[in-house]
Design a protein around this nucleic acid. Structure first.
Length: 610
RNA sequence: GCGCCAGUAGCUCAGUCGGAUAGAGCAGCUGCCUUCUAAGCAGCGGGCCGCGGGUUCGAAUCCUGCCUGGCGCGCCA
């Protein structure tokens, strides 16, 4: 156990028990980071009322029983009853040494490992992905990696949309234009244009719309081999596209993780009859519906979960219900995370409520909607597509890499090939970190300039920090993987850095509790910032032998934690980066001019995030 | 109309079941490259935490009313 907050909490809890009896031995020691010490305990203030004593007296009694031998200096009571806790330099140094030498970097493996199903990415594969899919893909992938590292059995689940009305449109349109027509070839070169044409017809031609809906019913019924053949053709193309995008993004999803809506088709009839038999589903306006209590609609009447449409077709509620049942029956999950857009919050609440009525949700299993916030335009409004000018995700990725490459042009000392490789890591890393570092459920303003800047709290800053550490070892001719402690702390910068190394595990468990990867981003940015401060103030290679050894060990431990954290976030890490040559301030050339940008007024659709 | 979420520095955002003087990054201003990578570091300026009530030793945080914005509300996902 290296997390200072935990270690101190245990000690203070012991003191509480010793001072006030067993009733208080498990009360919250309220350890928090402090601006006046390393940590502080705020336990005395709320306890004072219960004990009918003055807060300062309570604090004094806690301090009197508080055994911090070997861990911290003498605690001090200050203010109305805060207990300031300052860790000893020796303890910090020893613990930091242990973190650096530990293959798990001080992160304990879960004591209660469980199966965690993580549904993420889940694009509608009738069309190409867009920026809205980027967030759920990247956040979900980071969660999958982090849960796995924490010792859980992660099942990645890419719940792609391959079974809904859009496929009816595509198949019908494909039949209209002819499989060997030039239009059909668009499916390989420019699928969005093909989709847009089908969509236009669907919206403007009621006859076509009816045929498309009829086509999807035919597909779902499974009675028409020709429909099935065309569908498989289309899905095959989509899967190839997904492989390319996931590869570019360095996302861990594979074909094996795809369990799209079609996967549950064979269960839908049984789900419908089971819900009917249990009296949960009834026919209303021709559709089979469940009405879980607590969800009034516009008119005050209960809102339906439509299980089967009046035309006999199935929809997303049908498949989502079947999916719940399938996961419970086949996977026995302790937890299921739906990394899906927040606009579907009501839908999932109603699905979970219906599943609960059906008795499918075991008491222990937690089904959670890990909401992903909307993507907005700079004007604050919801982004709508204007026909044709939706920037493709692939274009977004290449622009990010191009921007990184443009900055690397300013760098001396690397050949073009090396720059190309680094630009890919930097461009993709910048994009991913930008999506990961803000709270996943906050509304997000799409702004390329901010997303692909390389200053401050960004992916490239963190990558750069690792490159600088590696550079030290390269200069010294030392293999950093062989460096071990002991670490000794003398300077403040060393102490601050070593102390931060100890809470990697706390950052991880914070992500596990909340399914919010941005907490890990915050931690690793703080760690990297403390490293650069140390780097500026504490020479490593020129220090005397003993200090040099300690500082090399501190560098190695930091490198392991930062690269470990970035790995868990899915941010790629180049081995080397060099700084751009500074441009004199009187030069007419600016470092950030002449970059390619999206066409002005370009808008994107995010309505179908799933 | 009802429901959910949000409103924190000029901009983009953090803020760990209520805790001391509200934090970062960007942008602005000052310094720092014959010394391990300046995509960096050190520093400065910048806030009635949407508004009004309430709860209490203590509120950005909890409750309540209002204002503003986003999203959702029967056969799309």
């Amino acid at each position: 156990m290296t997390d200072p907050q935990q270690v101190l909490a245990d000690r203070v809890r012991d003191a509480l028990g010793a001072a006030f009896g067993d009733d208080y031995a498990d009360s919250d020691p309220v350890i928090r980071p402090s601006q006046f010490a390393d940590y502080q305990s705020n336990a005395a203030l709320p306890l004072a009322k219960k004990l009918k004593k003055r807060p300062r007296d309570v604090a004094d009694e806690i301090v009197a029983r508080l055994d911090l031998a070997g861990i911290a200096d003498a605690p001090e009571v200050s203010g109305p009853g805060f207990i300031n806790l300052t860790l000893s330099d020796g303890w910090i140094a020893d613990q930091a040494t242990a973190v650096g030498d530990d293959p798990r970097l001080g992160v304990p493996a879960a004591s209660d490992p469980e199966t965690v199903v993580i549904e993420y990415s889940s694009p509608n594969i009738a069309k190409e992905m867009h920026v809205g899919h980027l967030r759920t893909t990247i956040v979900g992938d980071a969660l999958a990696r982090i849960f796995e590292f924490a010792g859980h059995n992660v099942i990645r689940d890419n719940h792609v949309g391959d079974w809904g009305t859009p496929y009816g449109m595509l198949i019908e349109h494909l039949i209209d234009v002819g499989e060997d027509s030039p239009d059909a070839r668009l499916l390989r070169t420019d699928p969005n244009t093909f989709y847009a044409a089908a969509r236009r017809k669907f919206d403007s031609d009621p006859g076509f719309a009816d045929r498309a809906r009829g086509r999807i019913v035919k597909l779902q019924a499974g009675t028409d081999p020709e429909t099935r053949r065309l569908w498989e053709e289309l899905v095959g193309l989509s899967k190839a596209y997904l492989r390319d995008i996931y590869g570019l993004l360095r996302v861990t999803l594979t074909d094996d993780d795809i369990r799209g809506e079609s996967f549950y088709n064979h269960m839908l009839a049984d789900v419908a009859s089971e819900l009917t038999d249990k009296g949960i589903a009834v026919v209303s306006d021709g559709a089979l519906c469940a009405f879980p209590p607590g969800f009034p609609g516009r008119d005050g009447n209960p809102l339906p979960v439509i299980i089967r449409k009046s035309d006999g077709g199935w929809n997303y509620s049908s498949t989502d219900l079947a999916t719940v049942k399938y996961r419970v029956d086949k996977m026995n999950p302790g937890r299921v995370l739906y990394v899906v857009g927040s606009e579907q919050a009501l839908h999932f609440k109603m699905i979970f409520a219906t599943a609960k009525l059906a008795g499918w949700l075991a008491d222990g299993s937690r089904f959670e909607h890990a909401q992903i916030g909307m993507v907005q335009g700079k004007d604050g409004g919801r982004l709508k597509t204007r026909e044709g000018d939706t920037p493709k995700l692939s274009a977004l990725l290449s622009e990010s890499v191009e921007r990184a490459r443009a900055i690397l042009d300013e760098v001396e000392g690397l050949d073009a090939e090396a720059k190309d490789a680094i630009a890919e890591d930097v461009g993709i890393g910048a994009l991913k970190y930008a999506d990961l570092s803000t709270a996943r459920d906050s509304t997000y303003t799409f702004d390329f300039d901010r997303m692909i800047t390389f200053k401050g709290d960004t992916g490239p800053y963190l990558q750069y920090a690792t490159a600088r550490i590696r550079s030290i070892f390269r200069r010294a001719g030392i293999d950093e993987t062989t460096v071990t402690g002991p670490i000794v702390v003398t300077e403040k910068a060393e102490r601050d850095l070593a102390l931060k190394l100890l809470s990697f595990g706390a950052a991880i468990s914070g992500v596990i509790e909340t399914s919010e990867p941005h907490r890990l981003c915050g931690y690793v940015f703080e760690l990297a910032s403390l490293f650069t401060t140390f780097y500026e103030h504490c020479p490593v290679l020129k220090a005397d032998d003993e200090t040099r050894r300690s500082r090399l060990a501190l560098c190695a431990a930091t490198l392991r934690v930062v690269t470990g954290a970035l790995g868990l976030l899915g941010v790629p890490i180049p081995e080397r980066m060099l700084a751009p040559v500074p441009v004199p301030s009187d030069s007419p050339v600016s470092n950030d001019s002449n970059w390619p940008t999206l066409p002005a007024g370009c808008t994107v659709v995010v309505s179908a995030v799933r």
